[in-house]
Design a protein around this nucleic acid. Structure first.
Length: 477
DNA sequence: ATGTGC
């Protein structure tokens, strides 16, 4: 193991102050022995770098899917004190509100017929791939409303039901959105891309519930054994990417202006309450809203296809929940025994609020928030529940699932897309993608196994397993 | 992740 790190128990490790100079708090990460074999020292250094930032509270955290990212590690969580703390685009990531939602159906596998037909239909309806455009081109006014109201805007436009909003983190939109700080360039990228899936590890997957670990909670979440579900994983597309790019530049100068010492230029940041910090937060929230509306529009397309192909009702496909994997938020947490407002950055991490917390759907309040962990292509996905332990240990946070072991370029070299597609098809998983290249890049071997990642957070108690889902068919960009 | 080197 790496020097300067203590193992606390089976799944918890501590990075001692001094691992890098000027750490204000220790680092803490969650890992199993087998995941430790593929741990990148660079990611732990990034975790330690985050611990040097002003106003950081308790720990700089790493989830078991931690890997090297831009400035902050992916699979990282850090909370900052509101007066002395900072906000940083690197702590959120380029794909603002990349997230995932799970939809149920009243169908079983035997009702599906040939999944190939369904997958083809989905592939031809949901725009997929880099730079793809939507059939609906937004007007400037519509984009403005979409950025202010997120999934609520989409539902008002007819892309879903009010019940959907109840099953989204933040009810599907952040009120803090301030579109004054979204550039013209970002808007121009966003206008033609609403309701598109994107590329990379984004996907739309047909899944079967293969195992129920917590029958009572699965029932409350609306999930049952052998049920067919749909998982949608995508983000804010070119708009969020542009917002991140624009504000990084702005915050690089702000870092100097406010005399913040950072060990890595990629940690560019500004005080939370500074003009620059507030501008980034407002634009980030607008991008997050774009992503929620985007997933809501894709949900609508999926429901219409299922209605057409399987003659089921639109309302038979209920939303279990929608979580974000990349966001910064103001939240109230207990710090030193006091309820305190803090700014939590989650980058490749999921909120996992426990029973009784605010912003959990009322009917699920006794059980904790649904947590959705997508697997990599061809591997299991998981439904978990948030816990009180997460509230106490990790500012109500857990893993997000897709932790790379090696880079896209290395994945491409080590695997052929066509072969992976054939192998998955032999296992009964039908993959339809815009190119074999993206299949090679997303090869399951390029990722930490989702089962192992989930097992660690379960053992640590920061979220608990409710159900496992296996892929049947997937579309990718 | 991304109008996929700047």
């Amino acid at each position: 193991m790496i020097e300067g790190i203590d193992r606390l128990n089976e799944v918890e490790w501590e990075v001692k102050p001094g691992f890098v100079p000027e750490m204000r708090v220790p680092g803490k990460f969650f890992l199993s022995d087998s995941l430790a074999e593929t741990l990148e020292e660079g990611a732990i250094k990034q975790l330690a770098n985050v611990a040097t930032l002003p106003g950081i509270l308790k720990y700089s955290y790493g989830m078991p899917d931690i890997h090297w990212g831009y400035g902050f590690p992916i699979g990282g969580v850090a909370a900052f004190e509101m007066e002395t703390g900072i906000i940083s685009p690197g702590g959120v990531g380029f794909d603002i509100n990349c997230g995932v939602r799970l939809l149920t159906t009243p169908l079983k596998k035997s009702d599906l017929g040939k999944p190939k037909r369904l997958i083809n239909e989905l592939f031809h309806t949901v725009p997929t791939g880099v730079g793809t455009r939507s059939e609906k081109k937004l007007s400037a006014d519509e984009l403005e409303d979409m950025m202010c109201e997120g999934a609520k805007w989409a539902v008002n436009m007819g892309y879903g039901t009010p019940e959907d909003l109840n099953r989204c983190e933040e009810k599907g939109f952040m009120e803090a959105a301030d579109t004054d700080f979204v550039s013209k360039k970002a808007r121009l990228r966003g206008m033609p891309q609403c309701g598109t899936l994107g590329s990379g590890n984004h996907f739309l997957e047909i899944q079967e519930v293969s195992e129920i670990m917590d029958p009572e909670v699965a029932d409350k979440f609306g999930v049952s054994k052998d049920q067919i579900c749909v998982m949608i994983h995508c983000g804010s597309r070119g708009l969020g990417h542009q917002v991140c790019t624009d504000h990084l530049k702005d915050l690089e100068s702000a870092t100097k202006k406010y005399h913040i010492n950072i060990p890595d230029a990629q940690l560019a940041c500004a005080p939370i309450k500074s003009d620059e910090g507030k501008a980034y937060f407002g634009a980030m929230a607008a991008s997050a809203n774009y992503a929620w509306a985007n997933r809501q529009m894709i949900t609508h397309m999926v429901r219409e296809i299922f209605e057409k192909v399987y003659k089921i009702d639109y309302s038979d496909m209920k939303l279990v929940y929608d979580v974000t994997h990349n966001v910064a938020k103001y939240e109230t947490h207990v710090v030193n025994g006091q309820k305190t407002e803090v700014c939590v950055h989650r980058k490749g991490a999921t909120r996992a609020f426990g029973p009784g917390c605010h912003d959990i759907p009322h009917e699920l309040s006794d059980f904790g928030q649904p947590v959705i962990i997508p697997g990599s292509m061809g591997t299991s996905s998981y439904l978990l529940k948030g816990t009180q332990t997460a509230m106490e240990k990790t500012f109500g946070s857990t893993c997000h699932g897709s932790g790379r072991i090696f880079s896209r370029s290395k994945a491409k070299k080590s695997a052929q897309g066509a072969e992976i597609k054939d192998e998955l098809e032999k296992k009964g998983i039908f993959v339809k993608a815009t190119s074999n290249k993206v299949i090679a890049e997303e090869s399951p071997e390029a990722y930490k196994p989702s089962s192992e990642v989930v097992s660690v957070v379960h053992k640590a108690g920061i979220s608990l397993e409710v159900a496992r889902l296996e892929p049947i068919g997937v579309i990718k960009g």
